[in-house]
Design a binder for these strands. Sequence first.
RNA 1: GCCGGAGUGGCGGAAUCGGCAGACGCAGGGGACUUAAAAUCCCCCGGGAGGCAACUCCUGUACGGGUUCAAGUCCCGUCUCCGGCACCA
Length: 853
Amino acid sequence: MKDYDFSQIENKWQKAWEDDKTFSRELPDRRGKYYVLEMFPYPSGKLHMGHVRNYSIGDALARFKRMNGFDLMYPMGYDALGLPAENAAIKHQTHPREWTESCIATMMDQQKALGLSYDWSRFLATCRPDYYRWNQWFFLKLLEKGQAYRREAPINWCGDCGTVLANEQVIDGCCWRCDGPVVQKNLEQWFLRITDYAEELLADIDTLTGWPESVKTMQRNWIGKSHGAMVNFRDRDTGAPIPIFTTRPDTLYGVRFMVYAPEHPDVLKMAQGTDREQEVRAFVDKAMNQDKYQRAADDKEKEGVFLGRYAVNPLNGDEVPIYTANFVLMEYGTGIIMAVPAHDQRDFEFAKKYGIGIKVVISPPGEQLKESDMDRAFVERGTLVSSGPFDGMDNEEAKEKIALYLEEQGIGSRTVQYKLRDWLISRQRYWGTIIPVIYCAKCGIVPVPEDQLPVTFPDDVKFTGQGNPLLSSESFVKTECPSCGGPARRETDTMDTFIDSSWYYFRYCSADYDKGMFRREDIDRYMPVDQYIGGIEHAILHLLYSRYFTKALRDCGLTSVSEPFTNLLCQGMVTHETYKDATGNWLYPAEIVKKDGGVFKLDDDSPVSVGRVEKMSKSKNNVVDPGNIIGEYGADTARMFILFASPPEKQLEWTDAGAQGAHRFLKRVWNTVQSVAEKLQDTNPASGEIDGGILRLTHKTVKRVTADIGERMNFNTAIAALMEWLNAFTAYAGADGADPATLRYGAETFLHLLLPFAPHIAEELWRDLGHDDMLSLRPWPAFDPALTLDEEIEIPVQVNGKIRGKLTVPRDAPQDGVLAQALEIDNVRAHTDGKTIIKKILVPNKIVTIVVK
RNA sequence: GCCGGAGUGGCGGAAUCGGCAGACGCAGGGGACUUAAAAUCCCCCGGGAGGCAACUCCUGUACGGGUUCAAGUCCCGUCUCCGGCACCA
């Protein structure tokens, strides 16, 4: 018998699929489309286990759908613009393009070594002009529609690097790269008006029935809709309007002070000329220089200063002092709040600290709350007091009533606020899509004419790590105004790379098209994505931006799709035990050995301490390299283990023993099918009736595997079913008198079911059974429901809820007979004799229950 | 604090609609083959009690209650863990 030479087999079939164009061919007789998509990777040059898990899940589903006759879309590409390439350029003095392209090449090789059935003819890389050209084109469309705009906004600025930083790139108020101070700065930046879509993005979450609850909740929280009222307070002395947003109009009679965000442009103006001016200026300066993250820290003490001015409450004429304080955010609402210390914990703390009075306007029903007794704000439901005409009203009702009254009086209006901000897309970086506009002293902001797209990367730039490299290219920056022909300057900001990933799944549908972003008919054919698979870390960013882009594309008349991803699967992390040697150094799994119930270092046998199971990460060295695993066990084993060990959305702990278990299974498959192939050589063609036991087991297995992949995406139970089948079949095949027709039927059906998980070995064994077509393109086996049911059924018999015996009866046997038989069982008798039977229950083909007293 | 998810053998997990808890695999134990080892194959494997034994009984799905002939599954309450958000007025 041949050995299971996985390495030779896997190379052979990967090449065969490529030569045959097995997965990029148009297939006949399809029954509808299915689009499987994995989140495209950033080409770092090295595949990790998280990728392998992602692709193993997607490929198993894709192969299943292909065999089930679907017009399958299953593409792969690269999210190839971004900072790492630029940092590599600075470090190694290479061009980001070279670094990225070489990473793409190695990454693709590693993906091909996994035997994934992508249609590589749809390949895309976002760093290539044929892709980012359409980013630019669409940006201009958005600009035309007012969806893209430029405004001044506060951002994180690192003076040493001369660039903006994302919030997550600011660590303890310092730049993550140069450790220099980061300051808040107002800069002109490009934004996309995603807030225009806040309501639709929120409402449509309800239509995403195929998404995990957790992701939908995170998106809802992020959009952060709240109902409330705008109320117009006034400055007592100048009469200037002081608009505020509140969700608690029911507490309006309890307002004791007002607070402005320190960044609010009116703060300094208001303090001007009062005796507070110096104090206010000092406070604002301090607040402005503080890192936003620090200022919002949990344990941060509330601090503020009185502006020396007063506001008038439009509802009851109360005059209250105006403060500025660190806990009020400029970005939310109007940047000004009304403060009700009796009924808001933050306001309560602030009032206590600065000796401001408290006024109760809501009391628990039937009680009178006293200010002097309060040690915290009262925020529960209650009844209004000291609120003029609204006294005695339930506070929930008063929210609506008071808001209506404000509208009647023209001093406020009911309104809705969102936490969602417009999307800041400007980046002072090189390796991103260049924003296609030109600045002309005479004409202002002028879009680059469509026929001049794409605006490509200039190559005469220096990567110094200081500032935006694009600024160093004079040939790029200096240009002519497309409108008046005069001297002009190109935009040097590039787009956030999340733009690239917000529409790539549309592009796959028309990857070769050069007249537009995509062809309408291709989108109509394949969109939306039926199953999207990726990590939970994109729950907000990528998935929200993509939903926004999809709606924006629709509103530009380019598609009729409203939601991009029908079903979303968020795979769990890949984890591994951690190891430390005696001196506390992290060890790689490859550096240790487990023996005699202990764990030791491979090179010197010194003891190793085993730490927690944690997400695979370079910092703890607990990483297993997919390349090594494929070398040692093969891609089929790696895929098999990953899918078997855990359901896809749960955490997966990589264990070497588990991988060996998966490998053992494949070897058993190999040995069993090879022995069948040998037997069939002598006795072919097989004829005659198929063994009833194997026939029923096989139909049952087809049914289970079909549902486990197609309906539940529980690959682990599908594989368990295959293992059970193999255990039974191996026993049958090894016994005397195994029938050739049964052997052929069983082995051939099984290989179809195995293929989505372990495609190489399945193809090879299919060949060895004497076939010369591609198993990958064969139809999925059907099952006969009648044959998935056993003829005889074992039924447990309970007395008072405890099992006292079992009964083997034909399926659908008459109920009376079954009950009579059940009562005859010795052990059942032992528990019923001398007692009164008060109830007999028979669930057909399931269980018999007798209740006695 | 708020929101979401989860707690089942030594371990990963299964039980899909309220109907035999622990499928399948890993680890462990025993046996076969072998000069020996590896590989492979077979058997056992939640806890406790009784029996020579086939077997029988009790107990068990985080904890406390409840509904039901029957609960891992449904309801009420509690605890723990994981993830997200968090001064959003």
